[in-house]
Design a protein around this nucleic acid. Sequence first.
DNA 1: CGACTTTGACCAGCGC
DNA 2: GCGCTGGTCAAAGTCG
Length: 261
Amino acid sequence: MISDGCQWRKYGQKLAKGNPCPRAYYRCTMAIGCPVRKQIQRCVRDKTILITTYEGKHNHPLPPTAAVLAKTTSAAASMLLSGSTATEAAPNGNSNPSFLSSSNNFLFPHHFLYSNSSTMASLSSSSPNYPTITLDLAQAPLINNHSLHSQRALSSTPNCQTQNIPPSNGYPGFQGHPQMHMLPPPQAQHLLLNNQYPSSLMGNVGATIASDPSFGSKLAIAISSMVGASATNPGMLNGNTNGCTNISSSTSAIIAHGDAS
DNA sequence: CGACTTTGACCAGCGC
DNA sequence: GCGCTGGTCAAAGTCG
């Protein structure tokens, strides 16, 4: 498990159909009565990927680490919504999705995907009820062709929402640039599951990311915060419930990159 | 001893 | 109605 800055208590575990790895259920215990829950499950195609699904809205202020992550994700989502993908990202005239809150109890996007394969780290988000965001924090591309790498990454691993990306020296301290996709529900789910990403959208997303020089630093802050939280909360990092391998090795690699920045 | 995890049981929704 | 599945509960076990 990667710590996201919040405190969680496991309340159940089930074997889901079609996936030999059990799904674990956690409840936020940072405040009494906090309704936020999350599910953690390994990707059936790539067991190094952990799929974390958040549900609900915190009824308490988030700790700094979680708040930074939340605000960074929110900022990234806002950036895309206000960018060239806005018309595709905001169907039905809804240009202000409910999860794009600036408050401290920001509603987490619904899916985060974590990977412990080598030095890669990934996170992603999607939901049938909210715009889908895929933040791919994999190792960075060799060249600065964002849309090209978006397409290549997304076509490499069917049914998994995050993929490896070739390394590069894109963002200092993070050695990678995020792949971020925002798609309208329910088409988002359809596109993700069926591996059909419109090239025009991917190109627009890449261009949007490339046009925001602050995006990389925002993301680096978020990841550093997550890693920092893990380092100060070994119980969360090494809990290793439900038989999952902890990812301390990969997060350590991220720490090194973060410190280098 | 308190906090947390484990795990079988229970319940609701859904399709047949 | 029945069976399957996903989500939750709660008692028992574990750990520091």
